[in-house]
Amino acid sequence: MSATAEAVFRAETEPLRRELELHCYRMLGSVQDAEDLVQETFLAAWRGFDAFEGRSSLRTWLYRIATNRCLNALRDAARRPDEHEFPAEPPEPTRWGDAPWLQPLPDEIYEAREAVGLAFVSGLQHLPPTQRAVLVLRDVLGFQAAEVAEMLDTSAAAVNSALQRARATLETRVPPADRAPAPRSAAERVVVDRFADAFQAGDVDTIVALLTDDAWLTMPPAPHEYRGAELIGRFLRTVPAGGDVRRFRLVPTRANGQPAFGLYLSRRAVGILVLTVAGERVSAITAFHDTSVIARFGLPRTLPYE
């Protein structure tokens, strides 16, 4: 291609980069993988730009390329991380999770109205790849059944059937969000501050009192999932830092539209902690044992001495 053609390509595709990265993040649950897949998408589009006939919009064409690359990545079993090892023997979990590949998304990357809530993205990871693609393309992005069918080389009837199954599965995975206080509101801040103060004081009793009876503790990529305040309290009293959570420091941030913290042990970053707030209590704690995302949140690798 000529320099002029390259300039035209960049001018028409770059404005779509961010929304394509969000699409790939919903599909894959990984910020890094999403960025890599969009790079592959743009490379494939660049190579095929001369042959693009305009039968669909450029946006639809790019979504087709990106979606199919995500589906190929999801079929690669080797992309799963190794199982996380705890410093102490953890209690028997309520269940073993089957979707440990998940990373938090910094709030600065998307707009508030966009569907990237942690429960939603996590729920998507439990769907078969094609159902996941159909639900995101139809319910989140608003493509018509015929458009999705063309993207996936299938029929509109198959798309509608996959969408019904995906919706039914997702309803069992994603709790209602109507009890959540407004993001960044005073009501949310009160709950978050109480949690942080109790955590850094090693006051597990107060943490447990802040949890809903059916709260969940999950720790991607570890498959251990704990339900209920009592069981979560037992975990906190025995496993993190040998049960002495006073050794941790929490630095406020936000992820997936939810309050979050950079988690530090001995001044070194060890992950991201995300809270789901329901009313005046916490209904979920998601502890990401993944330091590769720390810089994306503008957080330091190590904290200075106080």
Rank of each mutant, 00 (worst) to 15 (best):
A3T: 11
A3K: 12
A5Q: 15
V8E: 13
V38L: 04
V38R: 01
L43N: 02
A44D: 15
A45G: 12
W46K: 10
G48T: 09
D50Q: 14
R55W: 10
S56D: 08
R64E: 14
N68M: 12
L71Q: 05
A78F: 11
F86M: 05
E89S: 11
P91T: 11
T94A: 04
T94F: 01
W96E: 12
W101T: 04
L102F: 12
P104E: 03
R113F: 14
G117V: 04
G117M: 06
G123H: 05
H126T: 10
T130M: 13
R132L: 04
A133C: 05
V134S: 06
L137G: 02
R138F: 02
L141Q: 09
L141S: 00
E147S: 04
A149T: 08
A149S: 06
M151F: 09
N160S: 12
L163R: 15
A168K: 10
T169G: 02
V174R: 03
P175R: 03
R179M: 11
P183L: 07
V190I: 14
V192L: 04
F195Q: 01
D203E: 11
D205N: 13
L210T: 06
L217R: 03
P223W: 06
H224V: 00
Y226N: 04
L231D: 04
F248K: 03
V251R: 09
L263C: 11
L263D: 04
I272T: 13
G279P: 06
E280L: 03
E280R: 10
A284C: 11
A284M: 13
T286Y: 07
T291R: 12
I294D: 07
A295E: 15
G298H: 06
